[in-house]
Amino acid sequence: MCSHRRRDRRAYFSPRTLGLMHEMSVAQGAAEAVLKGARREGAVKIIRINLEVGQLTFLNPEQVIFWLKELFKDTEAEEAEIIHKIIPARVRCSRCGYEGPLQVKEDPLFHQALPVFACPKCERGSLEILEGRDCIVRDIEIETSPDDQTE
């Protein structure tokens, strides 16, 4: 079943689809969701795409958007505006039940704050990640065909 799925995913895009960096694999999944959803709703044009990137993914949103634009060439989404939002991490502690954001450690040596995977409250329990490890298309704004509306 899985191989079948993968083939489907790639069917939208011809030779360009051989994977490169993992931003491209993720962009392929997102692009497929966009085009499938848009075509199902009878879109002639995709105006806007709202992308959500989890803080805990190792994805660079600019690169995901770059690949999306590449993949959308010659499709209904070619001119779409792509907006991205970073979804902060939310975790739950198995020991004390803490639920909320991760603790962040500032290190002056680095430009980026380091997330710490210890419970911010009890510092000992193991953490379950509730949010922030996905990259999804939240929604899209489309323009439907005038012909469809007359039906």
């Binding site: 899985c2 799925r5 694999s25 993720v26 392929q28 999944g29 997102a30 969701a33 966009v34 499938k36 959803g37 848009a38 709703e41 879109a43 002639v44 044009k45 105006i47 993914t57 490890r133 996905d134 990259c135 999804i136 298309v137 939240r138 929604d139 899209i140 704004e141 489309i142 323009e143 439907t144 065909s145 005038p146 509306q149 007359t150």
Partner: peptide, 25 residues
Amino acid sequence: SVKLGMHKIVDLASEESLLAHNREL
């Protein structure tokens, strides 16, 4: 007015996320 077409928001949040699909697999 018909030729203008119509704008519509399509919710895709429930579509499969590649990373989530990988985790399930």
